[in-house]
Nucleic acid binder design. Structure first.
Lengths: 226, 226
DNA sequence: TTTTTCACCGATAGTACTATCGGTGAAATT
DNA sequence: AATTTCACCGATAGTACTATCGGTGAAAAA
């Protein structure tokens, strides 16, 4: 009953969408090694040879998946930032900055899984994409922290801010994964942990501004001042 | 000139070691998909068919690699803890707790890479091993934090401690990777960041003990708690 | 010395996949 | 209505890998 007589190009486009959707699902479920033209075509309901009507070769499918996935991720991140910024309360904004990415990951865990996997697999065709995505995440998170009022105005602080963002980012992924695996039932609690982690690190950053030169010799005095 | 007439079993053992060494190197360089009996045998200097003299099949090689890798990792971790505990000074010990794992990772980055990769690859034969290793890391880190004086004596605190350990662990990996990629030249600085991150989170843990009004979690009425 | 063992070899059957090719019928164009 | 286009099909060549098999010579055992 659904078929409203499709034009040829509409039908082709639909098939292409089915292929991509099937590929994404297989990629998540079986990994890049399990993503074969046979499986994708079968899952999309066409002959294996017809796969090549839509993609030049297997590589091109991977490339398209990377673009699509990247676009979804970026969109998801933009939306998350927008939401977080809306909160008027300072503390609440800080917390939202961490809770929303957690939720975003939990909404599309397959994208993160695929990205993390590709990032560490030297044989992956998606490696470049994964590296870019990871870098974008770092910068994104660094910008978030900066938006919370922790500006870095010299080289050392900028590097530290990037390290903190990198670490918080990794922790966010780990906690989101733990939540999905059922180990951490409460996402809000995970957000609290992230807020607490970032507080400690950002205190280091703040105090660094007042301190003098020597790299880590300085932090011996850091301890916990009021 | 090196050959001191080896006995047959000695020669076989040597070949086996060569196979394992070659396999580990290929696994790191090309990923699990690139690890073929052809490549491993060739790299070890024997015929492809002779591979089966040493291993029942490809799976068994993977299994052995997982065991060997796991053993090395555990040994490395044990040693790291031992060293960290030796430091008499409190602050220094806290710092060593984070610096030493960083160094351990940098000494054997291939083991972490392989583990992380396997952990996120559903098609990996090493997945179970990777999951166990990751769990061991979490517990290990939680124990380290407990050793620093942050005991968790109720269910909520234990769960939080585990989350913190998980997050710190992920951050440790991320910073070590960043160091290896050349983004963070100074490992000591990375250790400082980790100390700072943990400080903030552990403060949350402490304050939880003193009672009611922690940051935000309290308002959820979170607790069941006997 | 004679016999047995066995680590290693080359050849090859079997499997799974990628990518191409010519054919087909319905949609689109003329 | 006649013609062209093209999404899809089945068949298949080509490639890369796994795993087995019988053979060989030197070490080990008798």
């Amino acid at each position: 009953m659904t078929s409203t007589q499709l034009s040829r190009s509409e039908a082709k486009d639909l098939t292409r969408r089915r292929l991509i959707r099937a590929a994404l699902s297989i990629l998540d479920a079986e990994g890049e090694a399990g993503l074969t033209t046979v499986k994708v075509a079968k899952a999309a309901g066409i002959a294996q040879s017809s796969f090549y009507v839509h993609f030049k070769d297997r590589q091109e499918l991977l490339r398209v998946l990377a673009e699509e996935g990247g676009e979804r991720l970026r969109k998801s991140m933009r939306e998350a930032r927008r939401q977080a910024r809306e909160h008027p309360d300072d503390l609440e904004r800080h917390r939202e900055t961490f809770r929303i990415p957690l939720e975003a990951i939990c909404r599309h865990p397959e994208l993160l899984r695929i990205q993390v996997r590709a990032r560490h697999d030297p044989s992956s065709s998606l490696r470049e994409f994964a590296a870019e995505t990871a870098a974008a995440y770092r910068e994104h998170h660094a910008a978030d922290l900066a938006a919370l009022g922790y500006t870095a105005d010299n080289e050392r602080d900028r590097r530290r801010l990037e390290m903190i963002a990198d670490g918080i980012n990794a922790a966010t992924n780990a906690l989101a994964m733990g939540h999905l695996e059922g180990r951490y039932p409460d996402l809000d609690e995970a957000a609290d942990i992230l807020v607490a982690l970032s507080r400690g690190a950002l205190r280091l950053l703040k105090s660094a501004r007042s301190g003098a030169g020597a790299d880590h010799a300085a932090d011996q005095g850091v301890e916990q001042q009021a």
